[in-house]
Nucleic acid binder design. Structure first.
Lengths: 220, 220
DNA sequence: GATTGTATTTCTGTATACAATTATAGGGGC
DNA sequence: GCCCCTATAATTGTATACAGAAATACAATC
């Protein structure tokens, strides 16, 4: 049963979705299946994921670009560890770009994107009422994604999307406060309102509060 | 003749440096040898760079991560174009991270890094007096690089370094004002002074001014 | 002449083979 | 026992071969 369909055909549903080898490897690193510092031997990965070395090597190159592994010449790929400090820093870096994204998005958003943002926000209200955390996590990501697109800047979209991937797995193991959904909804409402009012400053401030609180919720 | 040697063995000299296939391809895209939208056929690249498809494909994956090409499944790699807007946006994105880098660097810099920063700044003074623009471009990059390292955050280092690569080729064709070097030196001096004073706020402000002026110089 | 379906060619995606480098294990010297 | 050297094994880097998808060319049809 498809409940909500994003522009890119990502769906909010419970159906298992087939993943690329890259995505699987990414997931397994982010969920801690491989330990920080651990060497990723290509042959071993081939057997684990059932593909040959070529696609594995290309995946490792992309993971290096995402900062998840380090490729050392003639020595191979090693999993990069994230300290608590690294993780907190990540929120600061993300915050700077999320704020910039909101600013540009409010300047540059198209009517079609505004409709998608509104639609997505309405789904957030619906699933908050239903208290459905799993679906909310997906819609949350979608809400931010619409903003990234509305910023009309590829670089920003790429970077912020990769932060989302990072958070997706980190969040999956989280325990949530009882008022989590309603709190987040209000934070998003403030951001959405800034779009309606075309108020760049209010949008930036609402986003800053949102990320600061997200940091507290997840790091605090 | 080696004039200045960075920690990573990058040298300020006129000696030709051998480049990896990736670096060559990166250079050729950034210098406009391939036009935006142009399809990069693997076989053609193999013949041009004298290597087989495997390393070419891996290079294309990395270039995609850097935002220089777009890989479409079963259709190949296409060069991404940068509009004037994209280019101006890039300065804003870089500014946000350069400011964060300075803040963290002032908090976290080690004695060894502080010595390197001082040494680098002294070389900047020397080459400014000599009015040697080519060497200054390299030292400039080195000055920022020391700050990135002193931020002690891998993600930030990676991103800002890739911006530097971007700028390196863009700058190479630039025409400079006569007071370019002395102006830039004073901007860097303000940043360096903030490190000595351990004044985070002053450092952030000095860096913001520096990037704003760099944007004016290059986009204005 | 334009259009559509099909055959051919070209190109990408993946697997495998080979070369070069690095890691490992064992033996000799001190 | 410790260190160093060498031989071997393991692993990465590169080239090539093959399978499948996409683009192209062309002929048949309207």
């Amino acid at each position: 049963m498809v409940l909500y369909k994003f522009k890119d055909d990502t769906e909010v549903s419970n159906a298992p979705v087939s993943m690329s080898q890259l995505a699987k490897l990414q997931r397994d690193i982010l969920t801690g299946k491989f330990r920080p510092g651990e060497k990723l031997t290509e042959q071993a990965l081939c057997e684990q994921y059932g593909v040959s070395r070529t696609p594995i090597r290309e995946a490792l190159r992309q993971l290096e670009a995402d900062g998840l592994v380090e490729n050392i010449l003639n020595r191979g790929a090693f999993v990069i560890g994230m300290s608590q400090q690294d993780y907190e820093d990540m929120f600061e870096l993300r915050k700077a770009y999320e704020i910039q994204a909101v600013r540009w998005a409010i300047q540059r958003i198209t009517d079609e994107e505004m409709e998608r943002l509104e639609e997505t926000f309405e789904f957030m209200e619906f699933y908050t009422m239903r208290n459905d955390i799993d679906k909310m996590l997906v819609i949350n990501a979608g809400f931010h994604q619409v903003i990234y697109e509305a910023s009309h800047n590829r670089m920003l979209q790429r970077l912020l999307s990769s932060y989302q991937t990072f958070l997706k797995y980190r969040d999956s193991g989280m325990v949530y406060e009882s008022d989590y959904l309603t709190t987040v909804l209000e934070e998003h409402r403030a951001i959405f309102k800034a779009f309606i009012d075309r108020d760049e400053k209010a949008g930036a401030e609402a986003m800053e509060r949102h990320i600061n609180r997200a940091k507290e919720r997840r790091c605090g």
